[in-house]
């Protein structure tokens, strides 16, 4: 199994470290040709405007959509969840989502950095509460048909899974707890 992490900007190294420990072959994706042969791609947290700008400059929009049409699974965390959405609430006019998953995501939904927080989450299918780390986080306003809600915080949707797509608005890669990474590998990539 070959998993890529989009390495344009943000917390990509942390994802790579966790994925390597789960014994999948991992690659830091900086150019679209590196998407070839990937079973899954993680779009990490970072600044969604900066990542989107670099994605456009290097032709990632089409390349990622094409790879998904070939069956590549995608997991977006925080900024990544924003980018993979069908629609972005509070988007900058030039901010185009990838439209990979039928979710509507609200950016900077909790306020500024002083409102960033940690809270334990009930995350479906993975057992004990998961440590949620929310940093200038978005939330998922609504999900389309066939998208399962995996976790909520304070009533708002913070994790969802539909088909080959997984979105979390928090940061499992900062916790040292590999259960959501394992979920992505076992229940999103490996599930057909």
């Amino acid at each position: 199994m070959r998993v890529g992490v989009l390495a344009l900007q943000g917390a990509f190294r942390e994802h790579i470290l966790v994925l390597e420990a789960l014994a999948s072959s991992t690659v830091a994706v900086r150019l679209p040709v590196q998407l070839e042969g990937l079973d899954g791609l993680v779009i990490p947290g970072g600044e969604s405007t900066a990542i989107a700008k670099l994605m456009r400059t290097y032709g990632f929009y089409e390349a990622i959509r094409d790879a998904c049409a070939q069956g590549m699974a995608v997991w977006g965390t925080c900024a990544g969840a924003i980018l993979m959405a069908r629609e972005i609430g509070d988007a900058r006019p030039d901010q185009e989502p990838l439209g990979l998953m039928d979710i509507v995501v609200q950016r900077n939904a909790y306020g500024r950095q002083v409102d960033s927080f940690e809270a334990p989450l009930h995350f479906a299918h993975i057992g004990e509460p998961f440590p949620g780390v929310f940093i200038r986080a978005p939330y998922i306003e609504r999900v389309g048909e066939g998208v399962e809600i995996l976790a909520r915080h304070d009533g708002r949707i913070v994790a969802a899974h539909g088909g080959r797509m997984l979105a979390t608005t928090f940061h499992p890669e900062l916790t040292g707890d590999p259960r959501v990474h394992r979920y992505f590998i076992e229940r999103v990539i490996a599930a057909q």
Binding site: A7, Q9, G10, G46, A50, C78, Q113, E118
Partner: peptide, 14 residues
Amino acid sequence: LRVKTGLAEMLKGG
């Protein structure tokens, strides 16, 4: 500390 250092992690490569 985790949300403080975490924001810096999100700025990396930028």
